[in-house]
């Protein structure tokens, strides 16, 4: 998670206006789904990989590893499509023998979906790896999404990392005390961590409120817009 986020902030395109990158990614996603053809899917996968590595300058090892992990998930996923099942019922209406196997058709369908989803994953990865999440929120704001939602999402983004740090600390503190030694302990530790996280989240929202008041808060979280680079002179 941190790795994806830190690439999003440090690649060659991170200061580029998010509209270009979101446009690229969404266009690729749309093409992938709308044309729905294995060749198109493959082309888009290759193109998005090329953009991520060539244009944004991300290390190809990392990009491929990420897509590979997603491909692995997808593979187990399309297995469900590839394996075909036929239910049959006897005269009394009970379940008879179940036929199970692979057919040329089902394998083809599985491959088809696999490639389409891989293209989708590559397109989404391009966006996630090149664009800081906060920029996407800015983009939504400029598209007239309601300010309240954008502010809530901004706070969520900001505090995911802080709470994640706490989660890691608490998990470690439980582990050194053998909190995950067996099922009972694990469940108890998980509940303890969950509870503490909740209390911490709540405490933070209170502390944040105080800090905002001290900075003459007027009720909205207005900040200066970021300055972006553009592809073309305007």
């Amino acid at each position: 998670m941190r790795q994806i986020d830190s690439y999003a902030h440090s690649n060659k395109l991170s200061r580029l206006h998010p509209a270009y990158k979101a446009g690229c990614s969404l266009l690729a996603l749309t093409l992938c789904l709308a044309l729905d053809h294995p060749t198109v899917s493959l082309l888009i996968t290759a193109l998005m990989l090329a953009l991520t590595v060539g244009w944004a300058g991300l290390p190809w090892r990392f990009v491929l590893r990420l897509l590979g992990a997603e491909g692995g998930f997808l593979l187990t996923g399309v297995l469900g499509i590839a394996i075909s099942v036929r239910l049959s019922f006897d005269q009394a209406g009970g379940l008879g023998p179940v036929q199970i196997g692979v057919t040329a058709e089902s394998v083809q369908q599985a491959l088809h979906v696999f490639l389409r989803a891989l293209g989708g994953a590559a397109a989404l990865n391009f966006l996630a790896l090149t664009t800081p999440a906060a920029d996407l929120l800015e983009l939504l704001r400029s598209l007239r999404a309601p300010a309240t939602l954008i502010e809530i999402m901004g706070l969520t983004y900001r505090f995911i990392f802080a709470l994640f740090d706490s989660l890691e600390r608490m998990t470690m503190a439980q582990e050194v005390r053998l909190g995950f030694a067996d099922w009972r302990n694990s469940l108890r530790s998980a509940a303890l961590i969950g509870t503490n996280l909740f209390v911490e989240a709540f405490r933070r929202s209170r502390a944040l409120e105080t800090a905002l008041q001290a900075r003459a808060w007027t009720g909205s979280l207005r900040v200066l817009p970021r300055e972006y680079e553009h592809l073309f002179r305007r």
């Binding site: 809530i152 999402m153 706070l155 983004y157």
Partner: peptide, 11 residues
């Protein structure tokens, strides 16, 4: 309450 909602989603 937007602070609390943001924190809740993060939680």
């Amino acid at each position: 309450s937007r602070l609390m909602l943001g924190l809740a989603a993060a939680f």
